[in-house]
Each structure stands twice: as C-alpha cells, then as structure tokens.
Write a protein that binds this DNA or RNA. Structure first.
Lengths: 341, 341
DNA sequence: CTGAAAGCGCTAACAC
DNA sequence: GTGTTAGCGCTTTCAG
C-alpha cells in the first residue's frame, strides 16, 4: 500500500507538499498540485487513518453502547445516531453490552483508549456503585447518556420526558375509569424508570388517589420478569384492572401472564406498554403503547456528543428532553366490562 | 493521560522494560515487574490503542457492513459475529449501508484504511459492475461475504443453503397440492436470490412441472416491492394459489396485497416467507417461514474472516453453507379450499 | 535482565 | 510555494 513518503520520493517532492494536497491546505502551485494529484490517483493512495489519528489526536469516530442490538428500539436509535454523525463527517461504531456491566466496562475501556473521540451510552442495569463508577472508566473521553441515565448526573443527557409519558399513560387509564392501576417498572436506580414511576404517582395524585405499594412492582427489562411481576399483580386479592408496563419486552411477558391467568385484555384488564415496536400492533390484542422517538434520540445524542467534544468544559450540562406519544390501540378499555367478571 | 514514556521516566527505568511488563513478554525481574505494575496501576495506565495499532500494523478490529440495522435478521447476525469475535479477542464495528452501494463503498474505503484487519460484508444490491468492483475497494484488506454473495466469487463466503431452502419450501407447497406457485425474488444478480429461484424451479421440475415465467417476479427487498409484485401476481388471469416470498419485508408487503385483494390466506392463497422474524408468528395468519440461523451465520463469518486474516493466501476459498429450517405455521394450506372461490 | 534507538505513516511548525 | 524536521505513543530488535 502506497504511503505518502513513497509518493513524495517517487515524485521527487517533499512529503509536506504531498500532505498539503492530500489535505487540501497550504499553498501549492497549480502545476505541482496537478502532478501530485495524478500520482495519488495512480497509486490509489488513501491515507492511513491510524497514523493520521495518532498524529492528530482525534479519530472522528464515536462509540455507541446499547444493551441489545436486537431490540428494535435500539436499532432505530443506532440508525438515528449514525445518520447524524455520518453527515457530520464522523463515523459510528456500536457495541452491545447485553445489559451486562462487565461487558459495558470492557467497551468503555476500549473506547477510552483514544479509539473514539467520544461515547454515547445507554447505561446498562447495575448496582448504584457501578453506575456511579461508570463515567470514570472513560478517563476523560467525553460521554453522553441517552435513553437512560443515572439518577444524578453531572453529564449531558438525552432522554424522553418519562415523567410526562407515564403521566399521560396513567391519565388515559384513569380517564377510562380505572382506579386500581398497577405498574411494572424497570430498575429504579436509573432515572428513566424512576421518572416513569413518578409520572404514574403524579397522575394518581391528580385524581386524589394514593398510590398503593402493592400495585408497584419492579422488574428488569426482560420478558420473563414482565411475566412474573404480572402474575404477582393479578393474583392479588384486589387485583388491578389495568397495568402500565415500562418496556416492550416486559409487555410481551405481561400479555403471556394474562393469557395464562385467563384474563381477557382489554375486557378484564387494560394494558399499556412502553417503547413501541413493530409487533405491538400485531399482538392480540394490538397493544396501546407509549412511543418513543428512537431515531431522534439517537440523533440528538450524536449532536450532543459532538458539541461536548468541541467544548469539553462547557457549562451547564445539557439535558435534552424529547416528547413521547401515546399510541392508543385496543388493549385499553373502560373497566365497566370488567365488573361483570 | 499517562503514557508509557511518562511512567518509565518517573520510575527511572527504560521504556522498553515498562512495555515488556505491559505486554507480559520478555524477561523482567520479579522486583522490577512489581514496581512497574504498581506504578501502572497508580497512573491508571491503559495503552493507546491507536499508537499500538500503528506500530503493530494490526487493529484487532473487524468491520461488518449490513444493509439495515433495523432488520432483526441482521441484528441477530451482528450479535452472532460479535459473540465469536469478542471471545477471540477481537472487536467488531458495524456499519449500515442502507442497501446503498455508495454508502457501502464509503464504508469499505474507511475500513480499508488500516482501521480494520478484515471485513465481513453483506453486499448491498447493486449493478453487476458495482458488484464486481466491490472487493477491489478494500485494497488488500481481507473480506468475506455473508448472507449474500456475488454469483461468482473468488472469496470466502458464508451462506445458507438457499437452493435447498427454496426447494423445501416449494416442495411443501406442492405436497399440499398446489400446482400454480408464484415466487417473488430478490435481485437475481446476487447468489442467494439466484439460488432460491433455482431451488424453486428444481422442486417444480421434480414434480414434472415446468416453471412459468409469469409466476416469477423480481422485487428488491422492501415491503413495497412485495406489495406490488404480489398485486401483479394475483391479478393474473390464472393467478397462483400459493406464493413463495424471498424475504421478510416483502412478505409483509405480500400480506398487505392479499388483504387489499380480499384474498384470504390460507384458504384462498398459501404464503411462505423467508427470514423468520419475531412478528411472523403474530401476523394474521401466522406465516410459515424459512428460518435462517442468523446468529450462526454471523459467527461463522467471524470465524472465516479470522482464518483468512491469519492466512491471507490460503486456498481454496472457503464456502460455508448452513442449513435452514422450515417453520410451518398457518399461512399454508391445501388449495382444495381455494377451489371454492 | 535492562536500556538505547529506530521507526510505524502522518501532520504541522518553521525555515528557506 | 516548498522542503526539513520533530514528534504522536508504542513495539521491537539489538547491545550491553
């Protein structure tokens, strides 16, 4: 593979002149430029990105870590980020933490080794200590959180308005006449989950209802945990007539639980899920869902990280909040019918 | 950020000794090693990957280019590749070509600039010339094709047994008694599409049936094209009683077309799709599908590229072929019922 | 066992 | 306008 040194020597000119034309900077006479360009083309020269990065101390690469490639929510987020970055002359490399703190740690370590100029992170579930230790792993590489964030952050974040989203979903249920509403949350030591719970409580309070701890169940984010938490909820003496499930996998689990309990949705139980996905409208019944602007989250996070890279110490930290949208389908109905059971 | 030079100077030892302990090679006395390790830990030293890559002329990174992050088939493929690579000490960076040759070209150019040690490619649809030009874009960086490949390749490939898959699917339809079977293919200048068509024809021939060009329609791979090709097919005078659709997006489109034509599946028309996906079982009706081992494809491709990197000129080229599996659901039935219409 | 030194390919002052 | 040169941080002979 041709190097710049080679080309320069073959042409009998200096390296820096060649470099100048490659990078389109500095003054080079038209004749010289033409000669060099010709040689470059002929040799099919492409600069060695590694050498360039070493020298420039930047890679024009952003790392993105998500908990699961296969979740279409993250797939859309990835695409949104990639879109923004590629049009800004950056490239994106993505990694899958599998909701595993250790893997996430490894990737952060990797991305911090000057391989990326910044990283966008959907933090995986973890203990409070692990969560607190996360930013340190980057040793200076700029970081922005997207979709999820620690409860208290001194970093940029890009989230949806989770409080409001849960508030609206709960209000929808209340409007339909539900009074006993359950919620299955994600781990509450991450802000989005905590905010969703807050929105839920706030909506109840707005109707003069107290929230009842026995209707509040914490899952992780897998189908399984949705199944088991739903089972607990609906085996309660005064079981809820509606439930808000805080992510898409758990929503599937909840649906399975309802089926196993022979509870018909929405006639006996109303259901709202979070994180809309392709299948949601195909499920039986089609599930009412809080839709998040996944691609926009990715793009906003990309924008935020580039801004942070340009000005690492900018204050205050940026907190982008995007709106969600309740997609009403057929899994929610008035509880009137459920009294008949 | 601490560099190896810093550490060495602070300790009053030579750089190479520190390097030896960092890389765990060469002879260093136990005492010296302990001292250095201590300092390394204290400084929270992590080698600069860029500098290391420049020197070693390898990056331990593999690039993977797929046509669409959001297609769960590719998401699973990505995960399979990542799995294999990370356990082999490599990392994966993935890019989304959006089925666009120009974007794919850009990424190949990027990956060839010594940023990756090899690339795994699901080639995007393109003209024959573009397809032929693809490997050259890598300028020497090892390449393996996965899922799709050019008709004639002098490179390693990892594919499923497309001919057999289509043969089995078609045979299933024939067994049910169908005689007029349509097929909606992907662009035929890629081997997988050509092979699927071949399997379809072979199955017909095995029953002494000639394939009829008017039942063969070429789409791309989007829902749209499935919709339109299906419309054409079922508006034919002697329209088919069954159809084989060669990917998952087009399968959705075909289903929509059937609905718009008021053709009931499977009573009036039987349908088999390719590339099983989460929603397939939830569709109405649940669609019979050819399931491909997506994660295994990814893993096999990862294995193949590492092998190729280790021995760039190994002959012959490797052609891994993985089996598929027909998942029979409710979109296929005997055409007996269809005579009633 | 440890150290000195060359150099991976490129960029960016700074001379000329 | 063009050339010289000093590194970026690291690995790797090769001496001692």
């Amino acid at each position: 593979m041709a190097t710049i040194t080679q080309i320069a020597r073959d042409l009998g000119v200096s390296i820096s002149t060649v470099s100048a034309v490659v990078n389109n900077r500095g003054y080079v006479s038209a004749a010289m430029r033409a000669r060099i360009e010709e040689a470059l083309r002929e040799a099919d020269y492409h600069p060695d990105q590694i050498a360039r990065s070493l020298r420039r101390r930047e890679t024009c690469t952003i790392g993105l870590i998500v908990p699961d490639f296969r979740n279409t929510f993250y797939a859309h987020l990835m695409r949104g980020a990639e879109d923004y970055l590629s049009s800004a002359g950056y490239r994106l490399i993505v990694a899958d933490s599998r909701e595993d703190w250790q893997r996430q740690k490894d990737y952060l370590g990797l991305f911090s080794g000057k391989t990326t100029d910044g990283v966008i992170l959907v933090p995986s579930f973890a203990t409070d200590e692990q969560i607190a230790a996360t930013p340190g792993l980057l040793r200076g590489t700029p970081l922005v959180y997207v979709d999820r964030s620690p409860l208290e952050v001194q970093l940029d974040t890009v989230l949806v308005d989770n409080t409001r989203a849960a508030y609206e979903a709960t209000a929808h249920l209340l409007d339909l006449g539900h009074r006993r509403i359950g919620i299955i949350t994600e781990p509450l030591n991450l802000l989005n989950a905590a905010d969703r719970l807050r929105g839920y409580k706030r909506a109840l309070r707005a109707q003069g209802l107290a929230s009842d701890v026995k209707y509040i169940r914490q899952g992780d984010n897998r189908e399984d945990s949705g199944y088991w938490r739903a089972l607990e909820l609906f085996k309660l003496p005064h079981s809820p007539t509606a439930v808000l499930v805080c992510n898409n996998q758990m929503t599937m689990g909840t649906l399975a639980a309802l089926r196993d309990l022979h509870l018909v949705c929405p006639q006996q139980v109303s259901l709202i899920g979070f994180d809309d996905f392709e299948c949601a409208g195909l499920l039986n019944p089609p599930v009412t869902m809080v839709r998040q602007p996944a691609a926009e989250l990715g793009a906003a996070a990309a924008k935020a990280i580039l801004k942070r890279i340009r000005d690492p110490k900018r204050q205050p930290r940026e907190h982008v909040v995007l709106p969600t949208h309740l997609v009403v389908r057929e899994s929610t109905a008035s509880p009137a019918s459920s009294r008949k059971r």
